[in-house]
Simulated scan of single mutants.
Amino acid sequence: RDRFEKLGVTNVVWVWTVSGYLGNAEVMKQLYPGDDYVDWIGMDQYNYYLCHKSPNWLDFDRSQRPSHDWLRENISADKPVMLSEFSTAPDPERPERQRDWYAAIPEVAPTLPKVKAYVHWNRAVPGPGCDLTVDQGPALEGYRIAGQDPYFQQPLPRR
């Protein structure tokens, strides 16, 4: 950031993000460079159900809110938040769960008012049951439902 400022670059927004497991909260706090260097804060969180031996299904709220609340309480209560990566693994026994996970995003989003950016992770990660892509079936259906919600049909900010 210092280098950019020396060069006179002013059209950059600096996002501090961690791919976080809250069991590493103390380490994540130590990595934060400070408010003078960060414009936005973010964390990557997933519902890894059955992927990486994760035994519990977490709906969108339960997969995102703990990291959101931790960021607000431990890093910054004021900076805008980015859900810098989010996604859900499928439930092979109940495929509709993936649809419902995405379709619930517009219900949860207004309860996280400082979240100003949502970035969906759309790739498989290594491991069985870890295909996080949304390109067909119930997942795509839920993603479309969420994207059509009026909450996400807002005007873009002026440049």
Rank of each mutant, 00 (worst) to 15 (best):
V13G: 06
L22G: 09
V13P: 02
P33N: 07
S76K: 05
V9Q: 08
R62W: 04
E73K: 15
R94H: 15
D35L: 09
V18E: 15
V18T: 13
G8P: 04
V27D: 06
D59E: 09
R99E: 15
Y21E: 12
G42R: 05
L22N: 12
H52S: 10
Y32V: 12
D35V: 11
S87H: 01
R94Y: 14
V9K: 09
R72C: 00
E96T: 08
V18G: 15
P55V: 12
K6W: 03
A89M: 01
F60V: 01
D78W: 08
G23F: 00
T17P: 02
D39Y: 06
Q45H: 10
R65P: 00
Y32E: 12
P90H: 13
S76Y: 04
N11W: 08
E73R: 15
R97F: 06
N24M: 01
S87A: 15
D36I: 00
D59G: 06
Q45L: 03
N24E: 05
L83E: 12
G42Y: 06
H68E: 07
R65K: 11
G42F: 05
E73M: 08
W70K: 09
E96A: 13
N56W: 06
F4C: 08
H52P: 00
S67T: 05
H68W: 06
S67L: 12
Q64S: 08
E5A: 14
V27Y: 14
C51Q: 05
H68T: 08
E73N: 15
K29A: 06
P95E: 10
D35F: 05
S76H: 04
A89S: 11
F86G: 01
Y46H: 01
Q45A: 11
D61H: 03
E93V: 03
P33D: 10
E26P: 00
L71N: 07
W70L: 10
F60K: 02
R62T: 13
M43Y: 09
G20H: 03
S76F: 04
S76I: 04
N24Q: 05
W70V: 08
S63I: 02
V18C: 13
F60N: 02
D59I: 01
R65F: 03
K29S: 03
Q98R: 15
V9E: 09
D69R: 08
P95V: 10
R94M: 11
V12R: 12
S19M: 08
K53L: 13
N74W: 11
Q64I: 09
I41D: 02
D91P: 03
N47I: 01
L71Y: 05
L22M: 04
P33F: 09
D2P: 00
Q45T: 11
P66A: 02
E73C: 02
E5D: 12
V12A: 08
A89K: 01
R65W: 07
L58S: 12
E85P: 01
Y37W: 07
N74C: 09
N11R: 10
E26C: 03
F86A: 03
P95T: 07
F86T: 04
E85A: 10
W70H: 08
I75F: 06
R3N: 09
W16R: 02
L83A: 14
V9L: 14
W57Q: 05
D78I: 02
N47A: 01
W70G: 13
D69G: 00
Q30C: 00
V18K: 03
V38I: 14
L7K: 08
L31K: 06
S67P: 00
W57E: 10
D61P: 00
I75A: 09
